[in-house]
Amino acid sequence: LAPAYYARQDTKTPVKIGIVAMVVNMVFNLALIFPLQHAGLALATSLSAFVNAGLLFRGLRKRDVYRPGKEWPALWLKVGLAVAGMAAVLVWGMPALQAWSGVGIWMRASWLGAWIGIGALVYFLLLALLGIRPHHFRNTGRA
């Protein structure tokens, strides 16, 4: 989203929004580190990235620089269904925490690699079944 601002010779707005996102990240870090420990830091970083993207997007929409196409809601629904299906397969199939803790590092790494592969396979298979092809994600240059 930031390149859209740079293309319009506006370098200040993305920097200001980045500073806001950084402050939001620090606030979330402090709020989430105690209840969630190290996972709270990861969540805080993710949430601040969403804030950054949301503010950049809102600014582009407000200035009428970007208008999403009419096909976007259907695309987001299909992607959401694929994500939900992938999550369901991973939650259903992954071993319990005790099983992960009870094996060595190489077995855990093997399991993790296998489940990452299974998750990716399920996700892309579901996208294909829902009619999504790689060209749907490419930037066509249309506003």
Rank of each mutant, 00 (worst) to 15 (best):
S46G: 15
A49M: 14
H38V: 14
A39K: 08
R63D: 15
L47T: 04
L43I: 14
A42L: 15
H38L: 12
L56Q: 13
L55E: 14
G69Y: 02
G54F: 08
R61I: 10
D64Y: 06
L41M: 08
Y66W: 11
V65I: 11
S46I: 10
P68T: 05
K62R: 12
A44G: 13
L47Q: 03
K62V: 09
K62P: 02
H38E: 12
A42V: 10
Q37L: 05
V65S: 05
G40V: 02
L55D: 13
L47I: 13
A44S: 14
D64M: 09
A39M: 12
L41W: 01
S48R: 06
L43N: 03
R58H: 10
A53M: 10
N52R: 08
V51M: 05
Q37H: 14
L43Q: 07
A44N: 04
S48E: 02
L43V: 15
R63T: 13
Y66V: 15
R63K: 13
R67Q: 13
P68Q: 00
L55W: 10
T45I: 07
G59F: 11
A42R: 06
K62S: 11
Y66I: 15
T45Y: 01
H38S: 13
G69E: 08
F50D: 01
A44C: 03
G59R: 13
H38Q: 15
D64A: 15
H38C: 01
R63N: 07
G54T: 08
T45N: 11
G69A: 11
L47C: 08
V65L: 09
L55T: 09
V65F: 07
D64H: 08
A53Y: 11
T45F: 04
G40F: 01
G59P: 10
F57T: 09
R61Q: 13
D64T: 12
V51E: 02
Y66M: 06
Q37Y: 09
R58D: 10
P68N: 03
R61K: 14
H38M: 12
G54S: 06
V51P: 02
K62L: 06
L60Q: 10
A53H: 11
F57Y: 14
R63Y: 00
A44M: 02
G40Y: 03
L43D: 02
G59W: 08
G69V: 04
F50R: 00
V65K: 05
S46H: 01
S48H: 03
L56G: 06
A53I: 13
A53K: 06
A49C: 12
R67P: 01
K62Q: 14
L55N: 10
G69I: 07
G69T: 05
R61W: 10
F50M: 13
A39R: 08
A42F: 07
A39W: 06
V65Y: 12
R63M: 07
L60R: 04
